[in-house]
C-alpha cells in the first residue's frame, strides 16, 4: 500500500556494451547491467546497504570519462555509453583481484575462484605471502618498516576469538566497510566497530582494540550477515570448518519466524545433521532486510540444548 504513495519514476535510456537499456532514473550502472544479464563482479557491494564502492572490482568504462567508474554506485545517466569488458576494464578488474588475493585470505569467499579464472588473475606473482602480524592492530599511522619486496605484504593477523558467539578473522578482511555500515547508521546504530588506522594498515577495530565483551557490541550478528568473505563467522561454522565438517551441500535452509518478541522477524535456519549451524534473515524481507538481534541470531540454542524427553 505504501508503495502506492511513491511518485512514479522516470525511465532513462543508456547503452552498455552496444546494447540499449532502459532503467529507472536513479538506478546504478550495476542495476542496468543486471537488467541486460551482464555479469558484473562485486565484492564490497551488498543489496541491502549503500554502496561503499571501495573494492573497485566492478569498475566500468564510461565514454568521455578520464577514469573508470564503479558500476555499483555510479548512477546511470541518459545517453551514457558504458563498456564493461574493454581492455582497461579487464585490466583494472584483474589487478584489483590480484591485489586483494595476494594480501587477503579469500579461502572462504565463494566468488573468488570464478573471478580469478575469468580475469586470468595471478596473485602469486607478487611473491610469497608475508606471515601474520600480531601487532597489526596497533600500527602507527603514517609509518611502516621499509619492505625488501621478497614477500608480499598481507593483512594476516591472529584470529580473534573473544566471545562464545562469533569469530573475527581479519586475515580475510577486504575492508569493504559493510560490517561498519551494518553496525552503524545503516542498520544497527550500535557503532561498536569502525575502520581504524590508514592505508594498508587500515583495519576494523573497536576503540583501543577492546575485546568484544568490553566493547559496545550487542551481538546482533548483522555484521556477520553482510560480511562477504567469511572474516566474520558464527562460532559454530568456524568450529565445523576447523574440523573439516562444514558441509554446505548437506545443509537445509528453512525460513521461519523468530520465537521471541512480536516483531516477526523471518529467520533462515541453516541445519546440518538436525542441528542449527547458522541463522540468517532474508535480505529481501522488509521487516528485517537481513538483520536480526542477538536473540534471533543466536538464541536458537535452547531447542538443541534440550534433553530428549
Amino acid at each position: 500500500m505504501s508503495e502506492l504513495l511513491l511518485a512514479p519514476k522516470r525511465m532513462i535510456e543508456l547503452e552498455i556494451d552496444g546494447q540499449s537499456v532502459r532503467v529507472f532514473e536513479g538506478e546504478t550502472i550495476l542495476g542496468a547491467c543486471r537488467r541486460l544479464g551482464i555479469d558484473t563482479p562485486t565484492l564490497c557491494y551488498g543489496d541491502t546497504l549503500e554502496p561503499a564502492n571501495a573494492c573497485r572490482v566492478c569498475v566500468v568504462e564510461v565514454e568521455g570519462a578520464r577514469v573508470l567508474a564503479p558500476a555499483c554506485s555510479r548512477k546511470a545517466e541518459a545517453g551514457m555509453k558504458v563498456q564493461t569488458d574493454s581492455e582497461r576494464v579487464r585490466h583494472s578488474r584483474k589487478m584489483v583481484l590480484e591485489l586483494l588475493a595476494s594480501s587477503v585470505d579469500l579461502s572462504t569467499t565463494d566468488e573468488i575462484p570464478g573471478y580469478l579464472e575469468r580475469y586470468d588473475a595471478q596473485p602469486e606473482r607478487f611473491g610469497p605471502p608475508a606471515p601474520p602480524d600480531p601487532d597489526r592492530d596497533r600500527k602507527r599511522t603514517g609509518h611502516h618498516v621499509e619492505p625488501d619486496g621478497q614477500t608480499a605484504a598481507t593483512v594476516y593477523a591472529p584470529v580473534k576469538i573473544d566471545n562464545e558467539l562469533y569469530v573475527r578473522d581479519y586475515s580475510k578482511c577486504i575492508l569493504c566497510y559493510k560490517c561498519v555500515d551494518a553496525c552503524g547508521e545503516q542498520f544497527q546504530n550500535t557503532f561498536a566497530i569502525h575502520v581504524a588506522g590508514r592505508g594498508f594498515d587500515a583495519r576494523i577495530s573497536t576503540e583501543y582494540v577492546a575485546e568484544l565483551p568490553d566493547s559496545a557490541c550487542v551481538y546482533c550478528g548483522n555484521c556477520i550477515a553482510v560480511c562477504p568473505t567469511g572474516a566474520l563467522m558464527f562460532v559454530s561454522e568456524h568450529a565445523l570448518r576447523a574440523e573439516g565438517d562444514w558441509r554446505e551441500d548437506d545443509q537445509t535452509v528453512t525460513t521461519t519466524v523468530c520465537p521471541y518478541c512480536g516483531v516477526g522477524c523471518n529467520l533462515e535456519l541453516h541445519v546440518q545433521d538436525n542441528t542449527i549451524v547458522k541463522v540468517t534473515s532474508p535480505d529481501d524481507h522488509d521487516i528485517t532486510r537481513g538483520n536480526l538481534c542477538i536473540k534471533g541470531r543466536f538464541g536458537f540454542q535452547h531447542v538443541q540444548a534440550r534433553d530428549a524427553p
Partner: peptide, 10 residues
Amino acid sequence: RNESCGQCVP
C-alpha cells in the same frame, strides 16, 4: 603508502 587513506583497493 603512508598517505593512502586505505579506502579503495587499487
